[in-house]
Design a binder for these strands. Structure first.
Lengths: 184, 184
DNA sequence: GGCCGTAACATAGCAGCGCTATGCTACGGT
DNA sequence: ACCGTAGCATAGCGCTGCTATGTTACGGCC
């Protein structure tokens, strides 16, 4: 129904399922609970995506690969991505989202610890910066403001800029990041 | 009503105004039209903000100043910013939004033409990159996912990274950008 | 100056929404 | 064999955006 742009109403949901509207209240407690479950499903899928990113010998590539996985997850289920960051429902499952975000923080920390980034780099701050930039790009694409074709080159360029500013060698960084986007 | 987190309903809107629900249909054609007008007002205010950014002798500072104005506009009316990018209403006033965005493109082009950025810099691409990153950061802050305190340092760092990657001198860039954020 | 066409509005009521009170039904423990 | 409980179907509540209809007030025309 999300993909078909149909309004998601309680009555339309149960129609054809043989169940009544009460089933939604038994299992989800109401429409807000159902939306919350949908959002949680979105974070679960994203977490699975990021967990599937392999750890290679190139930590900068791995950081970029997290971004690729993030973008692919959003583009393959844009409605779910939009629901995840919908403003009308407060996201109470912040701990699950935080755990997922921590994977990116760890990847950044590894790139620093293995000497690709400045020793003084704050992994949390850089990961936050990268996530925010990627989120903005993905949001605008998912919403149709920007065409999907700009996502890969823009995300790639932004990642290179952020990691280069954090100390990585520009050429080496570009190679690592573009390899991640080419593979994804 | 947006600021008070109250649901914006037709009947609640006209209550106390002496008008009836029909006035909304006469002037806006319905609730979607009213939301569209609200969003357009948001873009109008943003355009006014960006138009008020003075042109100084430092084009990189001016680029960053556009970001500062963008962020201030969003933080001073977060509900309006959220409405502007609400997914449930398609934004048909894309031409107005484009005209506003063009200001940033022009600022980037000036920074390139005055020699601060690489001659091969694509102003549209770099402006898009900057806007997307800023939009992501502002969205997460406005939605309460990130604390407001991280906005200035993160936006500043991202801007420096993007403009440095485009060819500006790192130290000079940092000085220009941080001066913009300190002034804003 | 008297008339009317039109634009704007108030009123009442429509279908649809999320939600809940109530009663039925089918299952598991004693 | 019994009953307590979990789950669900039904009916209906208040509210939503919206519309059909009647009313009013203003501006152009003879």
């Amino acid at each position: 129904m999300l993909a078909a742009r149909e309004p998601v109403t309680l009555r339309a949901l149960v129609e054809g399922t043989g169940a009544s509207t009460m089933a939604v209240y038994t299992h989800f407690g109401g429409m807000p609970g159902l939306w919350s479950a949908v959002r949680q499903e979105g974070f679960t899928r994203l977490a699975a995506r990021l967990a599937a990113v392999p750890r290679t010998g190139d930590p900068v590539h791995d950081v970029a690969a997290h971004g690729v996985a993030y973008a692919r997850n959003a583009l393959e289920a844009p409605e779910l991505y939009r629901a995840m960051f919908d403003a009308r429902a407060d996201l109470a499952d912040a701990e699950a989202a935080d755990a997922t975000f921590q994977r990116l923080v760890d990847a950044v920390a590894r790139a620093r610890d293995e000497g690709r980034l400045d020793p003084g780099t704050d992994p949390l701050a850089l990961a936050t910066r990268s996530w925010a930039a990627g989120h903005g790009l993905v949001s605008l694409v998912v919403q149709g403001v920007l065409p999907a074709a700009v996502l890969a080159p823009q995300a790639s360029a932004t990642t290179v800029a952020l990691l280069t500013a954090a100390g990585d060698d520009p050429d080496r960084c570009r190679a690592s990041v573009e390899r991640a986007w080419a593979a994804g």
